[in-house]
């Protein structure tokens, strides 16, 4: 009888530990899942926007040349980087890494930071030409040591802004 009571108490305690253990497990899965889609992925070359966009004040379109004329802003080809880095800051480790890629004729596999679902038709050109500053959607990139996504890029957020600015909200504007 006494043994039964003791066993029941032990079972109750184990059930409690199990419940909170399960919660910890779910927490770990949640953390891992979010880590796989990080807001600031590690890049193969540690490119500092703080130097180029903040200190040197390079315009965004200097490197992302297609932002105002195409749907994609474009990641600059290595030739654009090498145009300056053939003679500037050539001894910096990250610039050496860059030169290594050029010499080996091996592309740099940049990790994408901003990704929209396939069913969204977004064009940079329309937004830039409507006078939307890059920072409205990308945040203060010039202040980022490593580029990160600071806006949710969800439909609700886009539509709220479209409404506020009087931009079209017809489904076919973004979904084709």
């Amino acid at each position: 009888m006494r043994g039964d009571k003791w066993r029941m108490r032990l079972l109750a305690r184990l059930a409690l530990v199990g419940w909170f253990g399960l919660a910890l497990l779910v927490l770990a899965v949640l953390a891992r899942h979010r880590e796989q889609a990080p807001v600031a992925p590690v890049q193969p070359i540690d490119f500092p926007h703080t130097v180029h966009a903040d200190r040197l004040k390079l315009a965004c379109t200097f490197c992302h040349t297609f932002a105002d004329r195409s749907s994609r802003a474009g990641v600059p080809p290595l030739a654009t980087c090498m145009a300056c880095h053939r003679s500037i800051a050539v001894e910096r480790p990250e610039v050496r890494k860059l030169r290594g890629h050029v010499e080996r004729r091996e592309p740099v596999v940049w990790q994408r930071v901003h990704r929209l679902p396939d069913h969204v038709h977004f064009t940079h050109k329309r937004h830039v030409r409507a006078g939307v500053d890059c920072s409205a959607c990308h945040g203060a990139v010039a202040k980022m040591e490593r580029t990160k996504r600071v806006r949710p890029l969800t439909m609700g957020w886009c539509v709220t802004c479209h409404r506020a600015r009087g931009a079209p909200t017809d489904c076919a504007t973004c979904h084709r």
Binding site: V132, A136, H138, A142, A164
Partner: peptide, 18 residues
């Protein structure tokens, strides 16, 4: 600072025509 940056630009615009 990075995420607060650009909030001013959300509702303002500087259209090329200006």
């Amino acid at each position: 600072e990075a995420s607060r940056g650009g909030l001013d630009a959300v509702l303002t615009s500087a259209p090329a025509s200006e």
